[in-house]
Design a protein around this nucleic acid. Structure first.
Length: 632
RNA sequence: GCCCCCGUAGCUCAGCCGGAUAGAGCAAGCGACUUCUAAUCGCUAGGCCGCAGGUUCGAGUCCUGCCGGGGGCGCCA
């Protein structure tokens, strides 16, 4: 193109087409020339020579026919090119889709991140699936991936330690170990709501009243409740301080409690068959965080926000109000935020905001530990990229954390890269409103179990399979369903989910496409199994002609590696998932119309295409953390 | 108040760095199983791409404003 145009700066784009629709396989556009000259002149002066160049002898073994219409120069490729592509897919086999675009990169992916003493809710589920698949994608692109499960085993623990002792006599006997922890959390939340509700207590529902009555038998009025709550908070703060200082009793109890929760989480990870390399509690990073903060105070980067500094900023705000740059309302809000931070250790950020890294009472907060985590992770893993897969509600926290890391010298302007991959939450299918963690809780494990039972029952209709095969197939279909349900749409949007009855959810899962892709891969494999021999090599194939459908299917298959790269580059698994659904659709259609094994003879080129389709679907599913069961 | 996300078929969503007649799936209707397993396939129907301007040869896509929906803004995590 450059030679024909006589210019070195021409750029072009190539789009795959549907042969049955356009009679060609790819469209070529020289975008630079198009923009430079406009459509009219481009069509008149350039399109003809572009078509002529493409039809020239140099490309004769690739190009079968060139046509043009409007700004598009359409090229029909020779059938041999497609089948050669199929052969290369077969040669690469399990490696098809892998690439080296991220060679030399070491990426930390921080995902799942459950809270000890709280219930795993749907947000953790999304984080787990998205993070895991992103890790797979980065690996497929050649990166070394360190998967880290950052367990919140510290924040808010004062309440748990105190509650465990304070409410001991009132716990119902039926609660298990982890159940106790959840109960304490529920008590705390209930108290917060009750106190926030004030005198009326109108916002407190019946279940919450029951909790209040059980655990605070002496407090019946709003004032008494408030007093009881304040005593609870005070005692909890003391507990936390002792824990941080390493008090033997508190540490021992804390350790036991963490174990209870981890054991509970394990059933969730087992159900999803997820194994995260590094399970590290945030407590691990406490000392490193304090070290960084102390050092930063020492060299003046971080400092205690004093009353005087706040006064100066307030004065500036007052000036702005006087100059009518801001309203008094904005000023009051800002002042309130400023005053709240007096006494805390803060890191000033380039955008003028502050990042609080230590409370005024000297205790750590999660920011302290997150900073420590960055320091230790850099020392241990020397990562080029750190990616956090955490819900969108923490966007502000992470943008500040990343800025603070650079200000504190824990990272340079470009190394490592920090990314917060966020996602939407689950919403009520009827109301469109966000489900609270308490509502979405219920069910992650139960939902998956119900999905397994559903697919188990359907499989059983099929016939000759052993019990174990049935279990495995159902497990994979269930996992595939939930993964696809979560990952086929853009992550930033919310996922609506029906409440109560699980049946509609399961039905949605089945329709969501996971089983469709699994089943497609299984059909392809069934053909190959029946054939029973290695598929023929390209060199054994005589003269052949591809159908439009075959050309389309093959071009979709050959696009797969690019989709893997794109999904990794955009940190967006849905790009991969949708492409798999697309391939599965084209393949199923092909499967229905083009028999491979017929009247005892095998169609060689179709066998090759079937093998390539099976490989691309299996490899793609594997990236999505779904394995194809041997039988279905 | 500030910030973020969303608005495309009855429903759930795709739609690339702006490019051919805006696509799938579900739901609805019709048709196809002694077959490489029908968890499938084929066909039909269904659209002021929220509204109004602007940029452009060309806008669902980019810009501005408006309307509507959801969310986030702790010395919690």
């Amino acid at each position: 193109m450059r030679r024909h145009s006589g210019r070195a700066d021409v750029t072009w784009e190539v789009d795959f087409l549907d042969r049955s629709k356009f009679g060609a396989d790819v469209a070529v556009r020289l975008t630079g020339l198009l923009q430079e000259y406009g459509a009219k002149e481009y069509i008149g002066s350039h399109v003809p020579w572009i078509a002529e160049a493409l039809a020239g002898p140099e490309l004769a073994d690739l190009v079968a026919e060139v046509t043009y219409k409007g700004i598009y120069v359409n090229v029909r490729l020779v059938d041999h090119w497609f089948l050669a592509g199929v052969q290369s897919v077969i040669d690469l086999a399990e490696r098809f889709g892998q690439n080296d675009t991220r060679c030399g990169r070491a990426q930390i992916v921080d995902y799942s991140s459950p809270n000890v003493a709280k219930v795993l809710h749907a947000g953790h589920f999304r984080s787990t699936m998205i993070g895991h698949v992103l890790g797979n994608l980065y690996e497929a692109c050649g990166a070394i991936v360190y998967r880290v499960n950052h367990i919140n085993d510290f924040g808010g623990f004062g309440f748990i330690l105190e509650g465990f002792r304070r409410f001991g006599p009132y716990f119902p006997g039926s609660l298990g170990d982890n159940g106790l922890l959840l109960e304490i959390y529920a008590i705390r939340r209930t108290m917060e709501r009750a106190v926030a509700a004030g005198e009326s207590l109108a916002a407190v529902d019946e279940g919450e009243r029951e909790i209040l009555a059980r655990y605070f038998p002496g407090a019946s009025t709003a004032d008494e409740l408030r007093a009881a709550y304040e005593k609870f908070v005070g005692a909890a703060d003391e507990r936390f301080q002792k824990l941080e200082e390493g008090d033997a009793d508190e540490v021992a109890l804390w350790r036991r409690m963490v174990e209870w929760s981890l054991a509970d989480f394990q059933s969730f990870y087992q159900a999803l068959d997820i194994d995260i390399d590094f399970v590290i509690g945030e407590s691990f990073y406490l000392d490193a965080g304090n070290f960084v903060v102390d050092e930063a105070i020492g060299n003046g980067i971080a400092f205690e926000l004093t009353k005087q500094q706040v006064c100066e900023e307030v004065a500036e705000l007052d000036r702005a109000v006087a100059a009518e740059e801001i309203t008094a309302q904005v000023r009051d809000k800002s002042v309130a935020l400023l005053e709240k931070d007096i006494g805390a250790i803060v890191v000033p950020l380039p955008d003028g905001e502050r990042f609080v890294v230590r409370r005024s009472d000297g205790r750590s907060i999660y920011a302290t530990r997150d900073i420590g985590a960055i320091k230790l992770r850099r020392e241990i893993f020397d990562p080029t990229d750190i990616t956090y897969v955490v819900g969108q509600e923490q966007r502000v926290h992470f943008t500040r954390l990343f800025q603070a890391a650079r200000v504190l010298g824990l990272a340079t302007a470009t190394m490592p890269t920090f990314k917060h991959i966020y996602f939407g939450f689950y919403v009520d299918a009827d109301t469109g409103r966000k489900l609270s963690s308490r509502e979405s809780v219920a069910g992650v494990t139960e939902l998956l179990a119900a999905a397994v039972r559903h697919f188990r029952a359907r499989s059983a209709e099929g016939g000759a399979m052993t019990e174990q095969e049935l279990d495995e197939a159902a497990q994979q279909l269930a996992v595939g369903s939930v993964v696809f349900n979560d990952l086929k749409r853009d992550m930033k949007g919310s996922v609506s989910i029906a409440r109560g009855d699980l049946a509609p959810i399961i039905t949605d899962f089945e329709k969501s496409g996971g089983p469709y892709v699994v089943y497609s891969a299984c059909r392809a494999r069934a053909i190959l199994r029946k054939y029973g021999k290695p598929v023929p090599h390209l060199s054994e194939i005589g003269p052949f002609e591809l159908s439009d459908q075959e050309a389309l299917l093959i071009s979709r298959i050959l696009e797969f590696p690019d989709k893997v790269i794109k999904a990794a580059d955009e940190d967006n698994p849905s790009i991969l998932v949708r492409h798999l659904l697309d391939i599965a659709g084209v393949y199923n259609s092909y499967y229905a119309s083009a028999p491979v094994l017929e009247r005892g003879t095998a169609n060689k080129s179709r066998l090759m295409i079937t093998r390539a389709a099976q490989l691309v679907l299996t490899n793609g599913l594997s990236l999505c953390h779904v394995e194809c069961p041997p039988k279905i």
